[in-house]
Design a protein around this nucleic acid. Structure first.
Lengths: 169, 169
DNA sequence: CTTTGATATTTAATACTGTTGAGTATATCA
DNA sequence: TGATATACTCAACAGTATTAAATATCAAAG
């Protein structure tokens, strides 16, 4: 029993249910998005899994070689899981493994040209789906949505960081 | 090379990048939400997995007994996967299996009282995280967010339905 | 009433990912 | 040198996704 049983009385009585609705909506969207994406990535032209793709994306964003442990943190996977994920990415020649020169314990990973190509192919395929999903929104709404998403995202990152601190410290 | 190389010229030039940003944001939020939720559900007091919980939620929403195949469709799992998921839910006595009386091929599933209790415990635990993630938003923004989420959700459902039609027809 | 075909679900085999705990290699510090 | 910490991998196990095949039941035709 770690938490506040009594909510702050800050005029949030009616909003309460909205908050739960949002929770539900986010859960459903996350679930659906993952399922759709999973199936897309499973097509013969890609044959990659979600953790693999997400890992690849991060390597692409970083742009340079990345330590295994940093990569695990950033993608929220355990080091043990990541070993297998990177194994399979390396088999498909989408990433390359090297050793850090000074500290030879560290394994560094970089995305290959082929990996970059795959990302852009996936993004292109995904774009159609997204246009269909967002087609009903006006430009105004899309902008608003984006801004709110950013705030939610940073809020969620805060939660994760707090949670990890509490769990792993 | 299956798709439209040339986007429609409908004044969507500047918005294009925003659409990709939204795609990225949704992907990240989905990923994070799933990870967070996964870890929450893995605590000793719950010891349940995401597909199990999502299945349970649907049974709760439906409120009455539900055919396996309908449940599989609604939760976007294959019938084969669902068999295992329901096996484990039944072991934990969170659901019960019965046979349809008239058509004895059909297996019906219902959520138990214990299952309902578990859902409300999870929701309570989850609420804290959500409040933290959404804490920065004003009530106005929360309402707007909710409305947009609804539209996005229905858009995504459309995509899924089209996709399934194309794949399974 | 039984054969045939469709439907509903389960099973089996395989791959991937998640968890935990132990193992290996390398670095660092005394 | 030896003890300890760090970075990663490995091994064992559970859960889920996929596919194809197996089982059980129904429904309809002869």
């Amino acid at each position: 029993m770690p938490s506040a049983r009594q909510e702050p009385q800050t005029a949030r009585t009616a909003e309460h249910s909205t908050l739960e609705e949002i929770e539900r909506a986010i859960m459903q969207i996350s679930w659906l998005a993952q399922r759709q994406f999973m199936q897309l990535l499973d097509e013969e032209r890609f044959r990659i899994t979600l953790p693999q793709f997400y890992t690849l994306i991060h390597l692409h964003q970083v742009g340079e070689e990345c330590k295994m442990s940093d990569l695990a943190d950033a993608t929220h996977q355990s080091a043990a899981s990541l070993t297998g994920v990177v194994d399979r990415l390396a088999e498909k020649q989408l990433v390359e493994r090297t050793r850090h020169e000074r500290d030879r314990r560290q394994v560094m990973v970089v995305i290959t040209t082929r990996g970059i190509e795959l990302i852009s192919e996936v993004r292109q395929a995904r774009r159609e789906q997204m246009q269909m999903a967002l087609g009903q929104l006006s430009e105004q709404e899309i902008d608003t949505f984006m801004q709110i998403l950013d705030q939610v995202l940073s809020g969620m990152v805060r939660v994760t960081e707090r949670g990890e601190g509490g769990r792993l410290a």
